[in-house]
């Protein structure tokens, strides 16, 4: 289970990248492509800087994820073959979509920076990047939804991936905006969004975690050694999430107070701690996830 740390890191960081992108860009970009009228004026300098920073963050996360995934290969130098089996391997597809996502995000950075042909192209690129990101998430889910692995072949897998992406994404974006811009328009909306997302995660994990959740699937007899996932991970994850939720709630209240009293109230600090807690819960949850499926032998 612990040996899977590269996959734990890869999936969490990769999903967070998608999440940041989806919460910060994709809806607006999509809107702009579908209803060009909604596109609005070209961004001013500050917004442009913020955008570039967020896109760069997404790119950096994806690059880090890709890098860490090499640690999971036993022949990393042969990784050049990984796109060979797009016809049937979701693993090949996952890599393709990750690379595609990275490429479009990079293009997005370039276009935002240079603005060569106005916002139309940029929005199109950003919309495509979003689609790539979604496909990245889909293939990541499909990859684990193996008929041979009942513990994973379950709606739990895609749902948990999406929720991880959105919760971490919303919080990370909020934090970054807070740090970089201090401007709190989108921030407030993201902070509010984090609350139900994390809350939903708690309920979802409590009920549906395979092997541990109240209604979570229990794997039947098979030729695969039974999983020995420590229950502690499950409980730890729930505790961390709950603590995170409380802190987010506190941050929301603090932000309210801050508005009214116009004094500093440590919103950023609260949010940062909440983010760390939720991230830690994701790490625990992911180890739990890989622990559900043991490999026989050594």
């Amino acid at each position: 289970m612990l040996k899977e740390w590269p996959l734990v890191a890869f999936t969490i960081v990769g999903q967070m990248a998608v999440g940041v992108y989806l919460t910060a860009f994709f809806p607006w970009a999509l809107l702009a492509v579908v209803f060009p009228a909604s596109a609005g004026p070209p961004p001013d300098g500050a917004t442009q800087g913020l955008r570039i920073a967020l896109l760069a963050l997404v790119f950096a996360l994806l690059a880090a994820a890709a890098l860490v995934s090499f640690f999971h290969l036993h022949h990393p130098f042969r990784a050049r073959y990984v796109l060979s089996n797009l016809r049937s391997s979701w693993l090949s597809r996952e890599i393709l979509f990750e690379l595609g996502f990275m490429a479009f995000v990079a293009l997005g950075v370039f276009l935002t920076w240079r603005q060569p042909t106005g916002v139309g192209l940029l929005n199109a690129v950003l919309a495509l990047a979003g689609l790539m990101g979604i496909m990245f998430l889909v293939s990541m889910s499909k990859l684990y939804m193996l008929p041979a692995a009942p513990a994973w072949n379950h709606a739990y897998t895609p749902l948990s991936f999406i929720m991880t992406a959105l919760a971490l994404g919303a919080m990370a974006t909020a934090l970054l905006i807070d740090i970089l811009a201090g401007g709190r328009q989108i921030f407030g909306y993201l902070l509010l969004l984090s609350f139900p997302l994390v809350g939903a995660k708690i309920i979802f994990s409590l009920f549906l975690t395979p092997g541990h959740g109240i209604y979570g699937s229990r794997s039947g007899p098979s030729l695969r050694p039974p999983a020995e996932t420590p229950r502690l991970l499950h409980l730890g994850r729930l505790t961390l999430l709950t603590a995170g939720l409380v802190l987010i709630g506190a941050a929301i209240i603090a932000r309210d107070v801050e508005f009214r009293a116009a004094t500093g109230s440590g919103v950023s600090g609260l949010l940062a701690v909440a983010f760390v807690l939720v991230l830690a819960s994701e790490v625990a949850g992911r180890f739990l996830f890989y622990g559900l499926l043991t490999r026989p032998g050594r």
Binding site: H72, L73, H74, S89
Partner: peptide
């Protein structure tokens, strides 16, 4: 000579037929 050692197939095979060989790293 081609296997990258990702061990994904081990999960896919329902008969647990594939086994990681630490000598060849595949």
């Amino acid at each position: 000579d081609r296997c990258i050692g990702c061990r994904y197939c081990e999960w896919a095979c329902p008969y647990t037929a594939l086994r990681f060989n630490a000598t060849t790293n595949t």
